[in-house]
Amino acid sequence: MRRSLKLAAAVLSGSLGIASLAACGAKSTDNNSTSAGAGSSSFKVGMAYDIGGRGDQSFNDSAARGLEQAKTELGATINEAEAKAGESEGDKEQRLKSLVSSGYNPIIAVGFVYQDAVDKVAKENPNVKFAIIDSSAADQPANVTSLTFSEEQGSYLAGVAAANKSKDKHIGFIGGVQSELIKKFEAGYTAGAKSVDPNVQVEVTYLTTPPDFTGFSDPGKGKQAAQGQLDKGADVIYSAAGSSGTGAIEAVAGAGKWAIGVDSDQAKQPALDKYKDHILTSMVKNVDTAVFTYIKSIKDGNALTGVKNFDLKEGGVSLATTGGFIDDVKAKIDAATQQITSGATKVPTAP
């Protein structure tokens, strides 16, 4: 989720560019760049991942799907740069600069942790287009586009599902990092649950606080937090914690209770297959849709600018139905959806 935006760019030019990308963990896939198979693409897109990177079964993987779609459908050459645990602001800046110096344009930064680095590098390179996911600064450079989501709306629906399915009217929320972004998930989830039953009890645990962002990449912390909430009596637990959430899902499944996934439909993730019978639903944040939409706007010569928000009404967030475990409360979820999309229900963005 980590709340959390992305980078795209163009053109590998020379061995020095390749070396600099390799040094910061990038991997080029420009040998498969064209959708029609007619030579290499001149449209080259770079992406810098958040902590956890590809394989987190969540936020970064959703961004990656949008990038892959651009490769397949738009003929883009893509290059991916992985983040490192405990890295400095300078590491983030260097990752972006390496993509720029190698000719990538646009560049997508995955996650709000890139905001300062994107602002600095974008100002130094006004002819390169950048996008950042899950962050929007009031004074960001004109060549930076923010891709944001109404996470609170999707989380409200998750709260409706949780409160309806909880036998003990006692549920839990685990946030990866206590940030303004993740608080949106908490606020929506709690509001949705209390719309069903004002007396429902909601346990809230955050794994870390800034500048410690390991709460998004430590399944052990997620498992421990979930066990603590289970011990207190929670029987449905929603985790907005990136790959740390996989640990929470493991603990909840082991206790025979319900887990709620985030960002991707986690019941469909291969690494979580053995827990799928205990994943009630997932609050799907369609980062792939935002990434592809942004890249296509560049390709079409009509680039998205400023802040582009993806809400429930336009499919930016949704609730997964894999497994059919929320089929029995579909009418209630549909009613809540209609109330939100019509504007009748205003979902809070802060706890």
Rank of each mutant, 00 (worst) to 15 (best):
P351C: 07
G172T: 09
A191K: 05
S136N: 10
G222Q: 03
V284L: 06
F149T: 14
G242A: 12
Y189W: 04
T349N: 10
S150H: 09
N79H: 11
A26S: 11
S41Y: 02
K167C: 07
T321N: 10
D91G: 07
K129L: 10
K313I: 01
A8H: 09
L157C: 08
N60M: 09
S297A: 08
P198V: 04
G17T: 08
F43Y: 13
W258R: 05
K346C: 02
T190E: 15
F112R: 05
D218I: 03
C24T: 15
S42A: 15
T321R: 15
D218T: 12
G111K: 11
A234I: 14
F325Q: 13
T205N: 07
E93H: 13
D116F: 03
D265F: 11
P126L: 08
G261D: 11
D327E: 14
L207Q: 07
D265N: 14
V204G: 00
S282L: 15
V121G: 07
A83D: 02
A36S: 09
S102W: 10
N31V: 13
A187Q: 10
E203C: 10
A19I: 12
A142W: 01
L67R: 02
L312P: 05
G176C: 08
T214S: 10
F173N: 09
A162G: 00
K330A: 12
L230I: 14
K71D: 08
A85K: 10
P219D: 01
P106Y: 15
A267S: 15
F292I: 00
A10V: 15
L312F: 11
K44H: 09
S15D: 15
V329Y: 04
Q201S: 12
T209F: 01
P126Q: 05
T34E: 13
L99G: 01
A336W: 03
T77P: 05
A226I: 09
V144W: 06
K257T: 09
K184F: 06
S166V: 04
T148F: 06
V347H: 06
A350C: 06
T341C: 03
Y156E: 01
A131N: 04
E93G: 11
S15G: 02
Q57V: 05
G159H: 14
G316Y: 01
F173V: 13
D328N: 08
F149M: 12
S297P: 05
P351N: 04
N143M: 09
S33T: 03
A234P: 12
S195E: 12
